[in-house]
């Protein structure tokens, strides 16, 4: 078990390193000169050259990368071109907003999708279930920016229930959360339904029913306890993906999270800030994924005890 954890931590570090290295090189190979964004209007070539020198962009890419690595090992991810502050600090300031949004979205998803999926499985092939089924198919085929705009126009612009953007009050989180959650609810509820249908029809459930186990216990203690294994894994993976992927929703709602930050950083070619963002979000997502993978054997004795004996 310990070697497994160490191996996974090693993989996580390596993956994060490769992600940052790729971004590092791609940013510098892309057209456009960051110096132009930070120089006065109509800069002279001397002025541009001075800025490049200041940012260390005058060096060949391998040299820049080596310097970056040396600083990285000392815990220094670089200084934001735009904020003139350590890039890591800027990212960490925005991170709580993104995490809050992702946690809110995953909680809403779980609370709605699990009962919905269980209900659909129990009412399999009835008219109301067909309605819910079509609803979830529609939900999973709508792009999230589109859901976002529809919610914005409906609830913020027309009904004035919520502020259209930014982070003013506690209610500001509702629309972006819903935008993310609607798609996830559609996906997860269909997974729950599929897993529940399989488990509800499985022999062990019929045998338990023959023993007089109540339908409620059969649904939750038997079928759902088994269906939960892939569902928890999926929720964890979705959560990890959200930490990286709520960019569009954050931009649509002007939510002050990491996604919104990185879009601006890309516009301003703020290389250190982009690198810091990639590093932090990739590490975070990988850590969540690792946690989920470690959780799995705890939930499934077949995996846990199978590993122990080998």
């Amino acid at each position: 078990m310990l070697t497994y954890v160490l191996k996974r931590v090693g993989q996580t570090v390596l993956t994060a390193f490769l992600a940052v290295a790729t971004v590092f090189v791609l940013l510098r190979m892309a057209p456009g000169d960051p110096a132009a964004n930070y120089a006065p209007p109509n800069p002279s070539s001397e002025q541009l050259e001075a800025i490049r020198q200041q940012f260390g962009l005058d060096q060949p890419i391998p040299v820049q990368f080596w310097t970056f690595l040396q600083h990285l090992f000392q815990g220094d991810v670089g200084t934001s071109f735009f904020f003139k502050r350590p890039a890591l600090d800027v990212v960490l300031e925005r991170l709580p907003y993104t995490i809050t949004l992702a946690v809110a979205a995953i909680v809403v998803t779980s609370v709605v999708a699990i009962p919905l999926g269980v209900w659909m499985a129990r009412r399999n092939n009835t008219a109301p279930e067909l309605g819910a089924n079509i609803g979830t198919i529609a939900g999973q085929s709508m792009p999230d920016f589109w859901i976002g705009f529809v919610l914005l126009i409906l609830f913020a612009v027309n009904l004035h229930w919520f502020a259209p953007s930014g982070f003013d009050s506690a209610t500001s989180i509702i629309l972006p959360t819903l935008t993310i959650a609607i798609l996830q609810i559609a996906l997860i509820s269909r997974l729950v339904r599929r897993e529940m249908v399989v488990n509800l029809a499985s022999p062990y459930l019929t045998v338990a029913r023959s023993r007089g186990v109540s339908e409620r216990a059969l649904t939750w203690r038997y079928a759902f306890a088994n269906a939960a294994l892939p569902v928890v894994t999926a929720l964890g993976t979705r959560f990890a993906a959200m930490l990286n992927g709520v960019v569009i929703v954050e931009v649509v709602f002007n939510w002050p999270g990491v996604g919104e930050l990185v879009v601006n950083a890309l516009k301003q070619r703020d290389f250190p800030l982009i690198q810091a963002t990639v590093l932090v979000t990739v590490l975070l997502a990988l850590a969540v994924q690792l946690l989920v993978d470690l959780l799995y054997p705890l939930m499934d004795p077949r995996v846990r005890l199978g590993e122990a004996s080998s």
């Binding site: 045998v207 023993r211 088994n226 004795p301």
Partner: peptide
């Protein structure tokens, strides 16, 4: 069911909840 009549199934390998111990299912 489970009081006046009980079932012994055909395939014992698939007849128990795989993630609960024998003991829990028996006491239940």
């Amino acid at each position: 069911r489970g009081r006046a009549v009980a079932l012994i199934p055909q395939d014992p390998m698939t007849a128990l909840n795989p993630i609960r111990t024998i003991g829990r299912q028996m006491t239940e």
